[in-house]
Design a protein around this nucleic acid. Structure first.
Lengths: 248, 248
DNA sequence: GCCCAATGGTTTGAATCTCAACCATTAAGA
DNA sequence: TCTTAATGGTTGAGATTCAAACCATTGGGC
């Protein structure tokens, strides 16, 4: 067998090999919980599952989890209270738009394209799904929360709305993908300023997407989602790629 | 703060909490490598990256990786040769369609819906992407390999073609999602028999999807991908859900 | 025939993580 | 006021995983 690449013949499989352990247990657990806070899975005031339960769900030991919870507490995201009816509660601290890793234009495009496939697909499937009254109510509440929330919480509330759409599909895999896509995209989105006019427009688009989903109009829901995503993509491409282009 | 659920108010975030360590290092590494073999990332004859390199890419120690490689060798999937110009080569052993976990109808639907969102979206984006001559060549080769391959290797070759489409998008996240979607779906697809007429039809659909992608017709590529996926979904729903329905 | 370098194979000690048992706190109910 | 039970807090032993150093094999080049 003659090898043209270290991996063998043909197109190398390099990119297909992904870390099964991208970091140590502490790092990955910290990132996971912070991501969930950032995308609104744990809104302020929310009480996390009890430590023993949460550790089991995350697949780490309680010792490891406790260390992470202490770090999150020290960073101001959690408050802990002992005793019966105690627990670990999420504060309303807003995660700083940290200096995320610098992405190449190709990476940025890769994230945007991924987000669009996921979120437009989610809108379509949600519109095709049978929604319970509870689910409809949750969608409306999430949409209203974005509109009525303070600007400081916009990113989190916006994310939560899009994830609520994913939850409406009934596919755990789409939910996971939506969470991941939002976490990736937020790292980029947080670098552009929130202008009131843009937020207003975005909120209107949310209403229309929601209406299409509730009406069961799959074509419309997907088209509106694409339009919505194109809006922020344009902002991003101009803001980030333009920047990168100039500094390049 | 009044809690309606253990996690707090409103819709519980339970489903959003995912294991950061679904299994131990040996298990997850074994699954990851076997999945890559199954989806054609490592075709027969392929030489894996050297151990030290592969361990680094997977994010595990060389000790852990070696243990997994030994298991895969014992299972017949790999052959190892020492010395200069040695290495670890993939055999042409076909993974048995093992008794995968029994899925509920909701889980099956969740997988199918996820696969459709990913693969239809991938077709669209691939058609919109600028393809190098090498990439076009790889796509054609992958499509041809499905058509000309033996039935025993069909699943692997079919998967590789769809993943090649994802690679054409240039988005690592779509590639990862396509690998995952394929691994999930294959667990289901392997339970239905491969009929020559179905394979013929599937191959024709592959050709048409490829043609649309190469021509840059995004609408067509996505529509054809949906039609292609609907075909196997129908087979699956009738075969699995019908079964479950009757036994239920 | 010897050398070299790239690969797999082995061993040892350290780091990380897990598990389980037990302690302390706390507010509601009796 | 005491009890209860659900929560967080602490400790020690063991398992898992890692890192690094070194050995053995092997085929091509000189």
């Amino acid at each position: 067998m003659e090898a043209s690449e270290a991996e063998g013949e043909g197109v190398p499989a390099g990119p297909l090999i992904r870390p099964v352990r991208p970091g140590n247990a502490l790092e990955t657990t910290f990132e996971a919980l912070l991501d969930l806070i950032k995308v609104g899975a744990f809104p302020p005031g929310w009480r996390l599952p009890p430590e023993r339960d949460l550790a089991a769900r995350l697949g780490v030991s309680r010792t490891t989890l406790r260390s992470v919870l202490q770090d999150l507490q020290a960073a101001g995201f959690l408050e802990v209270r002992r005793g019966r009816y105690g627990g670990t509660v999420v504060t309303d601290a807003v995660p700083e738009a940290s200096e995320t890793a610098v992405h190449s234009p190709a990476e940025i495009n890769g994230i945007l394209v991924y987000r669009r496939v996921i979120e437009a697909g989610v809108a379509r499937v949600a519109a095709q799904s049978t929604l319970t009254a509870e689910r409809r109510s949750a969608l409306r509440a999430a949409c209203r929360a974005v509109r009525e929330g303070e600007a400081a919480h916009y990113r989190r509330l916006d994310s939560r709305f899009h994830i609520a759409l994913a939850e409406a599909t009934g596919s755990q895999h789409l939910v996971d993908a939506a969470v991941e896509a939002r976490s990736l995209a937020n790292g980029l989105l947080n670098r552009i300023p929130l202008l009131p006019s843009n937020l207003e427009n975005s909120n209107r688009q949310h209403e229309r997407i929601l209406a299409a989903v509730l009406e069961g109009d799959a074509e419309q829901a997907e088209a509106l989602a694409c339009e919505h995503l194109e809006g922020t993509e344009s902002l991003l491409r101009g803001f980030l790629l333009g920047d990168e282009g100039r500094s390049g």
